[in-house]
Amino acid sequence: MIRLVAARRPTTVRDVALAAGVSPKTVSNVVNGYARVTPETRERVQRQIDALGYRPQAAGRQLRQGRTGMVTLAVPGIEMPYFAELSSQVVRAARRHGLTVVVEQTDADLEREREVAAGLPTRFADGLVFSPLEMPPEELVSVPHTPLVLLGEHAVGVEADRVSIDGVAVGTEGTEHLVATGRRCVAALGLKPTLHDTASQRLRGYRAALAAAGLPCGDELLLRVEDWTREDGEAAADRLVALRRDGVPVDGVLAMNDVLAMGLLRGLRRHGVRVPEDVAVVGIDDVPESAYCTPTLTTVALDRAAVAEAALRLLVERLADPDLPPREVVAPHRLVVRESSAPPAAR
C-alpha cells in the first residue's frame, strides 16, 4: 500500500510577519541586515524566523540586490591558531547572514595585502573583512569601492569600519596579574624587528603596569623575536635563562601571544626552570591549546566570536547603506587564570 503524504508548504515572509506582529517589509529588512530596525523588533522577528524554520531564497535576493553573497576574509596566516579559530567564527557568523566566505592568506606580505585589497583574485566578493599588518594607512584609505571592515589595531585612524581589541588594556591586565602574584621582574616576550601596532599597544600596557607598580621595565627585559611562533618562544627561553644567570632576576613573562608562551614553556622546562615557581608566564589570545599544555597557560582571552559577529554585522550594514559613517567596535577581553601563573597561595 502506498501512502501519499502531503508536502509541507515552505514558510513564507508573510508567515513570519504574522507570527511576529510586523509587516512583511520589516521581516525583509531583518533578513537583509538593514540597520534601520530596532533591536527589540529584530530580536522578535529573528525568534519567529528560527521557530518557523524560515529560509530566505538567497539566490533570488542576491540577484535582485546585484550581489553574489560572497565575502572575502583576508588574514596573515590560517595556520596560526588565533586566525584559524577567527576564520571559523567568521564563517559561522557569515552563514547566519546568508553569506559565504572565501578565506585568503596574505602571509603578512605587503604585495599580497595589496592584491587582496584590490580585489584579486576574488573580484566577485561583495565585501572584504581584512586583517592587514603591512599596508600603510594611506593605501588602506584608498582601497577601491569594495565595502571594507578592518580587523585589529593596524593603521589606527584610517576612516573605515573596524573591529579592534584594546591592546593597551590587554597588555596592562596581563602584566598587572603577574605583579599581583608577587612577580617583581617581569619580561615582555615578542617584540619583532618591525614593531606592528598590535605589539606596540601591548607593550605600552606592559610598561604602564610596571611603571604604576614602581617596577623596572628596562630594555634588557624585552625578549625580541623574529616572529610569533612556538620556535621563537622556545629559543627565547635560552636568553631568559642567561639573564637570570647574569643576575637579572626575571620571575615573570608577558608573552605577546599564546603560541610564543607555549614555546617558552617548553624551553624553560628544557632548562629545568619551574613554572610558575621560578617564572610565571602569561600569554594573550586564549587559543584552545592553552588549556591543554603543561602547565596550562594563563592568558588574556580575546573574544573571537564577538570579533567575527561584529565584523559581519558592520559589513552587512555597510552593504545595505554605503553612506554610513565609519564605525568602530572594540571587542571584549578577559583574564583567564591557569597553572602557569598560579600565585603562591594557590600552589
Rank of each mutant, 00 (worst) to 15 (best):
R3V: 15
V5S: 06
A20N: 09
S23A: 11
S23K: 08
V27A: 03
V31G: 05
G33S: 12
V37P: 01
T38Q: 13
E43H: 14
E43F: 08
V45A: 04
R47E: 15
I49D: 01
G53V: 07
P56L: 06
R67A: 12
A74E: 05
V75Y: 02
V75K: 05
P76T: 10
E85R: 14
Q89R: 15
R96E: 14
L99K: 01
L99C: 03
E104Q: 14
A108C: 07
D109G: 00
R114D: 06
G127E: 03
L133E: 14
P144I: 06
H145Y: 04
P147W: 05
A155I: 09
E159T: 12
G167W: 08
G171P: 10
T172H: 05
E173C: 02
G174M: 01
A180Y: 02
L191A: 06
P193R: 08
H196E: 11
T198R: 01
Y206H: 13
R207A: 14
L210S: 09
L210A: 07
A211H: 10
D219C: 02
A236H: 10
L240N: 06
A242M: 05
L243S: 12
G252D: 09
V253N: 11
M256W: 05
H271T: 09
R274Q: 05
A280Q: 00
Y292V: 10
T296Y: 06
T299I: 05
A301Y: 01
A301C: 08
L302P: 01
D303F: 02
E309I: 01
E309W: 00
A310Y: 08
A311V: 12
L312Y: 01
E317T: 10
A320R: 08
D321N: 13
L324T: 10
V330G: 04
V336N: 00
S340P: 08
A345H: 13
A345I: 08
